[in-house]
């Protein structure tokens, strides 16, 4: 394994990763929390809680660009599924740019960069999603809208099952009270994971991740001096996230099989193919 880096090296790594996160990830936790708690000058998010409010949101109140050129023309569950896909695809783009800024990532084989993103992006997305969530709903459309958890639960099966596990995870994850600087390192550690299937140079990936984890550990001690065991607690969340992704992949497979009306974005098709 790699030799221990010095405290100042780890500090500068933390800073670089944090800057990359703020530069590439559009919706930060800070921004989201300000909106959710009303600490912002802009108007509060438009609440989407039923068919009617969703329809209003689609007519320019929340989203300025409609999918497939029209407001909900399909069944509502299918429509929400498409909205989830759009957001996911956009976040995959952002995460790709973020990953490229993590020291060492672009020096990896291109093959391994592809593998790390294929397996890492959904875990990263589900780790960032709690920033936009509270127990009652989640921010959408760059904070212009707020979709209630109850509305998502009211969709017919299987669409009602998409977001509920993410809310359950989010409520527990948010109790750790991480900020964007913690999340930046945590998400980087998720991406640079040495046990993804098919990696060519496992050691090279592990070395980068080891540094990131050391930086995260040090950063948490400084940033959360009173939170005991926050680092090991966070490491445990890695296993929960993997479970969440596995279940999500199974649900997407189920939707693909049973809902002939739905289609999957080509980027997501790539990611899910032969995943687990």
């Amino acid at each position: 394994s790699s030799p221990n880096s010095s405290g100042s090296d780890l500090k500068s790594l933390a800073k670089r990763v944090n800057n990359a996160y703020l530069k590439n990830l559009n919706m930060t936790k800070k921004k989201a929390r300000n909106i959710l708690t009303g600490k912002t000058n802009s108007s509060p998010p438009f609440v989407i809680h039923d068919m009617d409010s969703l329809w209003q949101a689609e007519n320019g109140l929340v989203w300025n660009q409609v999918i497939n050129g029209a407001p909900p023309n399909k069944e509502i569950g299918v429509h929400v599924f498409y909205r989830c896909q759009c957001t996911t695809v956009e976040t995959v783009r952002e995460l790709t740019e973020f990953s490229k800024s993590i020291p060492g990532f672009v020096d990896l084989f291109l093959n391994d960069q592809v593998t790390l993103l294929k397996y890492g992006v959904h875990e990263a997305i589900f780790a960032m999603l709690p920033s936009l969530m509270n127990k009652d709903g989640l921010l959408v459309a760059n904070g212009r809208g707020f979709v209630t958890r109850e509305f998502l639960r009211s969709l017919r099966k299987p669409f009602s099952e998409i977001m509920e596990p993410k809310f359950e995870f989010a409520v527990k994850f948010n109790a750790l009270e991480l900020d964007d600087s913690d999340l930046a390192l945590f998400v980087a550690a998720i991406i640079l994971c040495g046990d993804r299937p098919g990696l060519m140079n496992v050691h090279q990936v592990e070395e980068i991740q080891d540094n990131i984890l050391q930086a995260l550990n040090q950063h948490l001690q400084l940033n959360h001096p009173d939170a005991s065991f926050i680092f090991p607690k966070l490491l445990q969340k890695l296993a929960d996230l993997r479970q969440l992704v596995t279940e999500n992949a199974q649900l997407v497979q189920k939707i693909k099989k049973t809902e002939s009306e739905t289609s999957l974005h080509p980027l997501l098709q790539e990611i899910y193919r032969d995943m687990y």
């Binding site: 783009r93 490229k100 960069q113 098919g198 193919r273």
Partner: peptide, 20 residues
Amino acid sequence: SHTLQEKHKILHKLLQNGNT
């Protein structure tokens, strides 16, 4: 290796060309 990149054309493109 080559086939992995072939199977992940969009990811590959995002990695190489950046956010366009």
